[in-house]
Simulated assay, not measured.
Amino acid sequence: MSHPEATVGRIVHYVSHGTPGGEYTSQCRAAIVTEAAQGDSDLIGLAVLNPEGMFFNRYVLESQDERRGGTWHWPERV
């Protein structure tokens, strides 16, 4: 299945890193696309919404399958 193009204003999921000691686990967080590269690049800028506040992250890599910390993916369809 083909995924849509990430464009400014779209909602995606950002995967948090978690903490080394395990106090916080890696989790999906809601994020809004703030900038999107033209062409084949899967790097985008995000405004990530966390329970503790919001942060901005530029040049976030897409990871639809592995979903490792520090990457984004499209929300699952339910």
Score class of each variant (00 low, 15 high):
Arg68Asn: 13
Ser16Leu: 03
Arg58Asn: 08
Ser26Met: 11
Ser41Pro: 13
Gly39Glu: 04
Glu5Thr: 09
His3Arg: 05
Ala6Glu: 08
Asp40Thr: 11
Gly53Ser: 03
Ala47Asn: 07
Pro51Gly: 06
Asp42Tyr: 03
Arg29Asp: 01
Pro75Ala: 11
Glu35His: 13
Asn57Asp: 10
Thr34Ile: 15
Arg29Gly: 00
Gln27Glu: 05
Pro75Val: 15
Val8His: 07
Arg67Val: 09
Met1Arg: 10
Trp74Arg: 06
Gln27His: 04
Gly9Phe: 05
Arg67Pro: 06
Gly18Lys: 06
Pro20Gln: 02
Arg29Ala: 06
Ser63Thr: 06
Met54Trp: 00
Thr25His: 01
Glu62Asp: 11
Phe56Lys: 13
Gly18Tyr: 04
Ala36Glu: 02
Val60Glu: 02
His17Thr: 10
Gly45Val: 12
Ile44Lys: 05
Glu35Ile: 06
Gly70Ile: 09
Pro51Ile: 07
His3Ile: 04
Glu66Pro: 00
Ala6Thr: 10
Glu5Phe: 00
Arg10Gly: 11
His17Ile: 10
Glu52Asn: 14
Asn50Gly: 02
Ala36Ile: 03
Val12Ala: 07
Ala31Leu: 02
Arg29Asn: 01
Gly53Met: 10
Pro75Asn: 08
Thr25Trp: 01
Pro4Gly: 05
Ala31Asp: 03
Phe56Ser: 14
Phe56Glu: 14
Trp74Gly: 06
Leu61Pro: 03
Leu49His: 08
Tyr59Arg: 14
Ser63Phe: 02
Val12Cys: 08
Arg29His: 14
Trp72Leu: 13
Ser63Asp: 12
Phe56Ala: 14
Thr7Ile: 15
Asp42His: 09
Gly39Ser: 01
Val12Met: 07
Glu52Ile: 15
Ser16Ile: 07
Cys28Pro: 01
Ala37Phe: 13
Leu49Gly: 01
Val8Ala: 13
Ser2Ile: 10
Asn50Cys: 10
Pro4Arg: 06
Tyr24Ile: 09
Trp74Ser: 00
Glu23Phe: 07
Thr7His: 12
Val60Arg: 02
Ile32Glu: 11
Met54His: 00
Gly18Leu: 03
His3Gly: 01
Pro20Lys: 12
Trp74Gln: 08
Ser41Gly: 14
Glu35Thr: 15
Ile11Ser: 11
Glu35Trp: 13
Tyr24Ala: 11
Gln64Met: 01
Thr25Phe: 00
Val12Glu: 07
Gly9Asn: 03
His13Glu: 12
Leu61Thr: 09
Val8Trp: 05
Phe56Cys: 14
Gly69Ala: 07
Glu62Trp: 00
Tyr14Met: 02
Phe56Pro: 01
Met1Gly: 12
Tyr59Pro: 00
Ser41Asn: 15
Glu62Tyr: 00
Ala6Ser: 09
Ser26Trp: 06
Trp74Phe: 11
Pro20Gly: 02
Ser2Phe: 06
Val8Arg: 10
Asn57Phe: 03
His17Lys: 13
Gly21Trp: 03
Gly18Glu: 04
Asn57Gln: 13
Val48His: 05
Phe55Trp: 03
Glu35Lys: 12
Thr34Val: 14
Gly18Pro: 02
Trp72Lys: 08
